[in-house]
């Protein structure tokens, strides 16, 4: 395995002067290709901030973030948007699907927005992913008509649409019942094993953490 991403001396502060809060205090982290890692830590430890920076949705105050050979802390907003679209996938706690779109339309969004239109190839890939997450019979259903577990599976399919190297999942099972949570986690493990997609899952759930091959603990803005 080789390093997919490498973070060095990552610092993130909010506010200025006396109101300044240092959330990340020189954090170092390396993720290898094909890893399935859990990101653990109490509330306020900096997990979400780290995940946001890794997702290129926020820039750190200082430090370096290298992924796939690119130094992302120096990239422009346009470059980060493109990088995010091509190399990163997101699964959020509250699924965050587009409510006026069908399951298939939600899944193919990352490809369609990249290509400027919905191609037949993208639709085929979207159908294949939905079949794979067990929602082949819900392809043309509006996302609002799906159950919580089904929505989260659509979100996973969407995260995989552009074949990203890294999927960042923020409490992906936090809003699901136990059965749905296990189904989602089984799906993530299967994709990780079969496609070698790297997953970094932020969670408070010990069962989810145990299901991951590596556990990364964040405490006081540092990774242990």
């Amino acid at each position: 395995m080789s390093a997919l991403l490498e973070i060095r001396d990552l610092v993130k502060t909010y506010g200025e002067g006396e109101a300044e809060t240092r959330v990340l205090r020189g954090l170092n982290l390396t993720l290898e290709e094909g890893e399935l890692a859990a990101l653990l830590g109490p509330s306020g430890s900096g997990k979400s901030t780290l995940l946001t920076i890794l997702g290129t949705l926020m820039k750190p105050t200082s430090g370096t973030y290298m992924m796939l050979g690119e130094e992302l802390t120096k990239a422009s907003d346009r470059e980060l948007t493109e990088f995010r679209n091509r190399h990163l996938g997101f699964v959020f706690q509250f699924h965050h699907l587009l409510p006026d779109f069908t399951a298939l339309e939600n899944v193919i969004f990352p490809t369609a927005v990249q290509q400027g239109r919905e191609t037949a190839a993208a639709r085929d890939r979207g159908r294949e992913l939905l079949e794979r997450v067990g929602l082949g019979h819900r392809i043309d259903y509006l996302s609002t008509s799906l159950s919580g577990g089904q929505k989260q599976r659509v979100a996973i399919a969407r995260a995989l649409m552009n074949r990203p190297e890294l999927v960042l999942a923020d409490e992906p099972t936090g809003n699901l019942d136990r059965e749905s949570a296990e189904q989602v986690m089984d799906l993530i493990k299967e994709i990780n094993e079969n496609e070698k997609t790297t997953f970094l899952i932020s969670t408070h759930d010990d069962k989810i953490a145990d299901a991951c091959k590596r556990q990364i603990r964040v405490k006081d803005g540092l990774a242990e």
Binding site: D77, R84, N85, R86, L98, F109, P110, V113, R158
Partner: peptide, 16 residues
């Protein structure tokens, strides 16, 4: 707002 945020996270540019 939240849908716009999701689109941006999924790689939609400001121009889009």
């Amino acid at each position: 707002r939240s849908e716009i945020g999701i689109m941006r996270a999924m790689g939609a540019s400001r121009g889009f």
